[in-house]
């Protein structure tokens, strides 16, 4: 058995959150009087798992379970509070919140900026420009300022640039949620090809069918703790039941 590509061992992460708007006055008042204006929020608690090269793993959990925090730690954006993380150097992440659009620049200029964030050079982007535009379906909007694009169109553009990355390890955080059905289908086709390749993928989604189709293994986070790690079928069914019950403990009322 090959050594794991991603290894997470006993990782915990807490954030310091402010009870009120932080100003110099309040910070100095708190420092002088010794009254804390912050509190701790645990996002991850003692999470351990490993992922082998080529594995496709889904990450599920309710809102606020710690999925994005975990992906940001794996991407090297956050530091783990305790524990250790080992990831490949060329790991690439795509988060659903978007990345660095310059609203005043055209779609074409933004493709260069987004590509540079993903490690693509100007020449490489120039070479792939037509492919990116075809994938995104935004050929007619090449010179439109990015501020005039809809959220779905921005997501199309971001995803279309991201799929050009050469990285062997990809992290996807709810990356295809806003686009229309046509683009979701196109993205899923790409995902299918990536799943059949030797690339390692860790993805979060609330679309359980999508995860069932592409990820044989599921990690389930609940309130920052990893509560299940195993084959997708059993875990996804249990997770779906848990979600419905948590939102409506008394069962459906008609």
């Amino acid at each position: 058995m090959s050594s794991p590509l991603i290894e997470v061992s006993g990782v915990s992460k807490k954030f310091t959150v402010y009870r009120q708007h932080k100003t110099l006055f309040r910070l100095s008042q708190s420092w002088i009087k010794g009254v804390p204006i912050t509190r701790e929020l645990w996002a991850l608690k003692d999470v351990s798992f490993s992922i082998s090269p080529g594995e496709k793993v889904g990450l599920v959990g309710r809102n606020g379970a710690g999925k994005t925090t975990l992906l940001r730690i794996l991407a090297g954006i956050y530091r783990p509070g305790s524990g250790s993380v080992r990831t490949p150097e060329d790991i690439q992440a795509l988060f659903n919140y978007g990345l660095g659009f310059n609203p005043h620049l055209s779609v074409a200029d933004n493709i260069y900026v987004l590509g540079a964030y993903q490690g693509l050079t100007v020449d490489e982007i120039r070479e792939k420009m037509q492919v990116i535009l075809e994938f995104s379906g935004l050929q007619d909007l090449l010179y439109l300022p990015a501020k005039d694009l809809s959220s779905g169109q921005k997501e199309r553009l971001l995803f279309s640039v991201f799929v050009q990355t050469r990285s062997r390890c990809l992290l996807l955080d709810e990356s295809i949620t806003l686009a229309d059905l046509g683009f979701q289908k196109k993205s899923e086709d790409w995902l299918r090809q990536a799943a059949e390749s030797s690339r390692t993928i860790l993805m979060t989604s609330h679309n359980l069918d999508l995860l069932r189709r592409h990820c044989p293994r599921i990690l389930w986070l609940e309130k920052g703790s990893l509560i299940a790690d195993g084959a997708s079928d059993g875990i996804l069914e249990e997770y779906a039941r848990h979600c419905l019950l948590a939102e409506n403990p008394a069962g459906p009322k008609i």
Binding site: R72, I77, Y97, G100
Partner: peptide, 10 residues
Amino acid sequence: NREIFLNSRA
């Protein structure tokens, strides 16, 4: 640059 800091390793 909030989005860039939170979503990339730039």
